[in-house]
Design a protein around this nucleic acid. Structure first.
Lengths: 249, 249
DNA sequence: TCGCAAGCTTGACGCAGATCAACGATCCGA
DNA sequence: TCGGATCGTTGATCTGCGTCAAGCTTGCGA
């Protein structure tokens, strides 16, 4: 809901100064651009507001657009023919959507909450990249980080137990919050248990059971269904299968 | 063994014309460079020959080098403190090693077979990238493809059964062979069963059992321990959980 | 050429997490 | 404010794959 308001504010103000007032700019690749670059970028972009459940990208469709999430959150996933789903990532403000893209989207993306995004035509964006090496470098950097995160997720999916998976997930969210300037102690979970399960390669039931176990052990405390506080960060990191308590990825 | 000879040949000839005679050039990012760019690239590179089991990169070490594999094959993996291993990829000639890298390596890399690689200092390579936007674009392209492959692997690790995993793996190897100009019918497996297991999130025993099952069903035929032929490609694709029989990723 | 270590296969059994089922909590629209 | 739908939790049971174990095959070094 605050996301929606932010999105609206950003969009309205956007008419006047699309990037200058963007609350996600310092988190995104745009941050490497100077005023001139920003102006050119905003000239080829298109601000899109989305509501809960809205589909941004559908697997198999021609990959015409790229997105920069400016508010809200998004789930990115792949499906098997029989409906089994693997969520490959959750996106938050500042995240880029469309990097891993050939001619057609190899994933679907849906809004988890209301929010907004800067949308670019892939072709136009490519031309822009060629003219702005800084932006291209920043994007390569992003891609590298995402690849690293993907490797961590492979380790999680291939080799970790249910407890380790959930602990890793929570530790990651905490680390993300810290990176965004928060205390990394209270975590928002905009997604459902089923989505967490599909991200961690588990079932809803297992996610629920393991959450309970962590709660009972006093490692976490549920504030509501969609927010919790980490009571014992060190223990959480340990459970996540990290040696030290950095919680980063 | 042919890999070793190729590597030696490449290295020896390399003294005279490092890139011109490189058998992996057309497969690698270098292919986008013109003569001038190639010359500059070879000036900052260093040819490294490696033997079976040799460690190229160790997780946690300062990330000083980047590699372009020119011959042989490499396994890239991550470890948990207790020794559980997840192989995040196998590299072959033309593949780039070191994309997903921050200040320190987040993975280890070991030679699966003897081979060779062009080695660059990360710092120097970065400078080179800034001067060669084409190379940077090519690398971004690589990163995108790798990210896409990583997403596929997440789907595999999170949601596929043992049979689907092995079938996907074999279909991928076949597709890779086809891309490299081969018939995609006979597959080389330079890795052990344990390595396949650690790549697919299974155990050696399961890999062995599932291989037997595919053999019994007549889908594959073992030519030796480390090479097999695909007898029923369509059925393999089906088992892999792909709708159509493209076998690509 | 032999011998042994490493890798592979196959079988018996166990268990972590899936599945099936029932019920409670939460949210949202009227 | 209410009512139904969706989401979440918990319990009982099942099962695919892991674990343990034993024998076989391969390849390499002496």
């Amino acid at each position: 809901m605050t996301a929606k308001i932010e999105a609206l504010a950003c969009a309205v103000d956007g008419r006047l100064d699309p990037c200058g007032l963007c609350t996600a700019r310092h988190l995104s690749v745009c941050s490497v651009l100077a005023d001139d670059g920003l102006r050119r970028l905003s000239a080829i972009s298109d601000h899109q507001i989305f509501t809960t459940g809205e589909i941004l990208v559908r697997e198999g469709d021609p990959a015409t657009n790229l997105f920069n999430i400016t508010a809200g959150s998004v789930r990115v996933y792949k499906l098997l023919p029989d409906g089994r789903r693997q969520i490959v990532g959750f996106l938050f403000p500042g995240d880029f959507l469309g990097l891993a893209t050939g001619d057609r989207y190899a994933f679907s993306a849906e809004a988890l909450t209301g929010g907004s995004a800067c949308r670019f035509l892939k072709k136009t964006y490519r031309r822009m990249l060629a003219e702005q090496p800084d932006l291209e470098a920043a994007l390569l950097d992003r891609a590298s980080h995402e690849l690293q995160a993907a490797h961590n997720q492979m380790l999680l999916l291939g080799r970790k137990t249910a407890v380790e998976r959930l602990a890793s997930f929570l530790a990651d969210l905490a680390a993300r919050d810290r990176r965004a300037g928060g205390p990394g102690r209270v975590i928002q979970l905009p997604m459902t248990r089923a989505e967490i399960a599909d991200y961690l390669g588990l079932t809803t039931e297992t996610v629920s059971r393991v959450t309970s176990r962590l709660k009972t052990r006093g490692v976490i405390r549920l504030l509501s269904l969609h927010s919790l506080s980490i009571e014992k960060p060190a223990e959480l990191s340990e459970l996540a299968g990290l040696d030290a308590g950095d919680g980063d990825a």
